[in-house]
Design a protein around this nucleic acid. Structure first.
Ligand SMILES: [Mn+2]
Ligand SMILES: [Mn+2]
Ligand SMILES: [Zn+2]
Ligand SMILES: [Zn+2]
Lengths: 143, 143
DNA sequence: GAGCTTATCGACACCGGGTGTCAGTACCGG
DNA sequence: CCGGTACTGACACCCGGTGTCGATAAGCTC
């Protein structure tokens, strides 16, 4: 989970040169490790304050964005258009989310990946990116 | 394309009882028929005004939403979180969109549909819905 | 450890897409 | 042609998110 020892081989830009390790960033990182479904910036800010962390909402917004941009966490938009974040495994995957409780399962499928690339190529599109999310109601929410 | 004759079999609630046909709705519908990539409510409003239609932005927002909710048009969210609309074919499909010019191609694939259902079932999820969008750069935008 | 440079923080003003309100308008069934 | 009511749209407002900028504090140097 930590990073950047003296070896220059692992190109994990976890700590971009010039990036500082602050109490606030640590707090956000720790919290993300504990949560396991997608949460909005405001949720996270609220939870941190509840736990007694002094931290500003602006900081939470920007830190989450930076983490997302760095690929350390995943973002997805709720139906309302709000961004929500979650620390995921670092392999490519998609999400199966419960629309009631928010429970999230990481899923993957070569079938989709191939399909996406094939379809794009057939239409002359390049530099492809794709979003695939499945939303439904989980087992426990149905009882 | 039209609907609701006297037969009670086709449950196509295109014109919900109590819904009125107004000049504004007609104008929006006509414009949507002419455009063929995703446009925001503001784009559509602007274009209508340019063409001399007197119409309020609020009306455009609400009409597009209603059309989307009725399944008559598709919605998708831009990277900026803005909703954009397009009249599509009425069969289930997904989109291949150019991130430069917005050119849109409807695509479909049984492979993805099956995959989504299988994955959901495996994890005990029901009442599944899914979003699949492919974004890239189209051929002409690359030259 | 002190000093210094500079990334970061965060209160606050602000932005912009979208929504609630409500008085005025115009469909449309009778 | 009329009346009831769905619809319209100007306007105030909501709210997630961003720009600003003085205060703060990492972390490197000596
Ligand atoms: Mn994929
Ligand atoms: Mn599908
Ligand atoms: Zn659930
Ligand atoms: Zn293009």
């Amino acid at each position: 989970m930590s990073a950047d020892p003296a070896d220059g081989t692992t190109a994990r830009p976890t700590v971009v040169p010039g990036q500082r390790a602050t109490r606030q960033r640590a707090a956000i990182g720790d919290l993300l490790d504990q949560l396991d479904d997608f949460r909005s910036a405001q949720d996270i800010h609220e939870e941190l304050r509840r736990r007694g962390e002094g931290i500003g909402l602006t900081t939470v917004y920007r830190t989450l964005q930076a983490l997302a941009e760095a690929g350390e966490i995943d973002v997805l938009r709720t139906a309302a258009g709000e961004a929500s974040y979650r620390r995921c495994s670092d392999t490519h995957h998609h999400h199966l989310v419960c629309r009631t409780c928010g429970r999230t399962v990481e899923v993957e499928g070569p079938a989709v990946e191939h399909w996406a690339e094939k379809v794009a190529a057939e239409h002359g599109f390049a530099e492809i990116d794709h979003t695939v999310e499945i939303i439904g109601v989980c087992e426990s929410c149905r009882s």
